[in-house]
Design a protein around this nucleic acid. Structure first.
Lengths: 139, 139, 139, 139
DNA sequence: GTGGTCTAGACCACC
DNA sequence: GTGGTCTAGACCACC
């Protein structure tokens, strides 16, 4: 299911939820918001949709949205306060380190890539496209 | 928990299971066997530990191991028969395509990488190291 | 054993299980649900009985029902999620291709038909009756 | 695995065994011999390979081949005697009836066909091709 | 000995 | 309440 979601300024945000996926809904929300922040679809300081709105428009429970926002807050991607709701963080730690979880996932993805005959150059190309998506909103 | 597992020829195989992870145990087994096949730790035609043995030595239930093997079989990584047990497939389809799931994971990993200040060159370097691991057994 | 099963809306569904068959129970369930979807007994979007209910009313274990549902899900016949349980898919890929397995079965069935003296016309007639069952709910 | 098998007169017979299939080996042998008889590849009165030979050339246990032959004998497809080994039956009962098992399989196959968008005419065409294979050796 | 199936029952995250 | 996972243990056909 693909949903058009508006943030508090009325800007559109695409949210694609798959209810029969083994990835929990709250994690799908979290992932897509991380991607949106990284690609610039969500800019530093920008307000996220309110929990209530996001829940209402996607038809999911507010608890589920809340769980996603809590996770994002805990990971440092967003801040929440009572007056302004949720907001994209302006600065991120330049730790230049991938989490162990991401490293594990990456290893499995690369393993699958190799086994289907994708060369390192071709894999770099796929990564390049994904990396570049983050620069579209920069120029 | 890290376990040394012997395949049917007595060769050692490292299996690291995290029982408190949100990744199901059968999926952890599946993932690590995919990585092992890709890196050459498990060679084409090589026999995997029997379901019973793997279960016994890791302390996991045979049903759980069975589930992992069924998944690997269904994905085309291994074949199973009652004569020889489980066996790494000799040939893989060079489809050169990543599954949607892998694409999604990769996108999230790359998003996290960007946000921690990892440049595309640095990310390529991480990938290069992982890609190269599979070539150690080639020379 | 023939069981009357109710789906979540209370609609009756016939399920006939043969415990002494060489066809595994989960496969019998899978097969009969595929037939039910194809004939329109189960309609697109319709909810299947919950795993628990189906297990309870048939006296089968939940794991066995779960296996059948997992298979149906993987084959694209149904979707499952924790909110709505299992649900018949609304759209199916018009691939117009039979699986190798179905081709093999069909070949054996046709071979048996020929050897018992059933002509191609007579065989087409049997198929016609089975094909037509799916159109009863259309008119 | 595809094996060229010689019958007792030296005639070649193609046998394709899939050891990781969920269809037991003895049933695969049985099925393929039924198809071979039906298509005329094996003619009435023709001798089958000896159990020992078939086992030797395919690498399967003689018990497995024996099981297949016993089943074929019991179903009336072949006769066995101590001097001549196994032999294709000359006459088959023109019962013009499909077994319940075959009816069940056919129903599932047709259900799958409908759901992938195969029309009755297209299905008849597939059947026609399979039916026709049995007439190639007739002319 | 091997994988495959099934049970009874528990527990879990998710919604 | 829902599906999903896991266990301990039994039994099975197949090879």
């Amino acid at each position: 299911m693909i949903q058009n979601i508006q943030n508090t300024e009325g800007k559109l945000m695409l949210l694609s939820l798959n209810f029969s996926s083994d990835v929990p809904i709250y994690m799908q929300i979290r992932n897509q918001i991380v991607v949106a922040i990284s690609t610039g679809t969500l800019e530093p300081g920008e307000r996220l949709p309110t929990i209530r709105n996001l829940a209402l428009e996607t038809g999911i429970n507010t608890m589920t949205v809340n769980k996603a926002y809590q996770l994002l807050k805990q990971e440092g991607y967003i801040t929440t306060d009572r007056r302004n709701g949720a907001m994209v963080n302006g600065t991120f730690h330049d730790t230049k380190t991938l989490s162990q979880k991401s490293m594990d996932y990456l290893k499995v993805v690369i393993s699958e890539a190799r086994l289907t005959g994708i060369s390192e150059e071709e894999f770099n190309h796929i990564c390049h496209i994904m990396y570049s998506e983050g620069n579209m909103n920069d120029g």
